[in-house]
Write a protein that binds this DNA or RNA. Sequence first.
DNA 1: ATCAGCATGTAAGGCGTTACATGATTCA
DNA 2: TGAATCATGTAACGCCTTACATGCTGAT
Lengths: 177, 177
Amino acid sequence: MARERKIDMVILGLLSHEDLTGYDIKKRIDGAISFFWKGSFGNIYPALKDMEKDGLIIKSDTSVGGREKLTYHITIEGKNLLKAWLQNKQASNELKYETLLKLFFGGADSKEVSIRNIEVFEEGIKSDLEILKSYCMVLEKDLDNPDHVYYYLTASFGVETYEAYLKWCSKAKKMLN
Amino acid sequence: MARERKIDMVILGLLSHEDLTGYDIKKRIDGAISFFWKGSFGNIYPALKDMEKDGLIIKSDTSVGGREKLTYHITIEGKNLLKAWLQNKQASNELKYETLLKLFFGGADSKEVSIRNIEVFEEGIKSDLEILKSYCMVLEKDLDNPDHVYYYLTASFGVETYEAYLKWCSKAKKMLN
DNA sequence: ATCAGCATGTAAGGCGTTACATGATTCA
DNA sequence: TGAATCATGTAACGCCTTACATGCTGAT
């Protein structure tokens, strides 16, 4: 069975635009992607090693002075695998919200506890929404760049769902009071 | 460090309402909870064993005839742990949407591929939305039951976010065309 | 001088999924 | 009789997170 590790596809996707180091890849993932996918060094470096062995990417030493630096470049095989993944209709979309779990079992404690949990959730969403909106505004100005349309759409997914979350938060707090 | 396994809290939450077998717990999780949390037998049975050892639940043999059956009951310690968890403000809310990942890297293939991926996503959401709406309708009729308010709110979270998803799908398809 | 940031990696541990393994009962 | 459902569990495997370990460079 082929590997299912999705971090490979994130890496391939990033490398399809530019050559990057593992460290750079981490920074990219921590940006706009982090709203729907995460990555860590303990995740990225082993993936890079495996993918090079498989011929999906090639490594080149770009060390500057005494600072070690390995830059990766995508191969034709890598690009083909990326496209095959994009063309595969199957996609796992999973949401794991502990806040909803707590709310579902809210009856086990006072309603104040549930209201507070909703408020904590609401605050987090509000601040993330600001970040997402700023991504959208930047991207909107340059939608002629074909890639920006894709980036814009993922950011706007975030904006629209987070706005729905906030609407729900108000309603939920009202219902509990 | 204490265990972080959230399945424990799902089990405790369910047992705080009624005594259940591992099999029953799985069925409950596969219901309304499955929209924001998942569980499997390979997950549930070991958790049950550990939690009994820890005195959070107690097991009793309720076998009928030759069919093995173990029913679990929550203890005071279990209820206290459940409340402590509810009162803890920290909550991990994570969304991992492969569809968004694919869309983000959509520029690596034709826009038709991205449109098709959005359509597949849309179909899945539409059918799940129907299920969520039916949960809401049932619960709305009996909001006097205090627990139903909590169940209703989690289901309505699903309805509202899924409706936002669908709105976004239309917009995204239009933008790509 | 020191601290933040650049840069690479490994190791342990935890959690979860999937498949396997077994067997009883109920209903068509 | 055979299939679906009830019912319990284990084992292998994979993936990810966290912490650890190391060292250079540039700015203050």
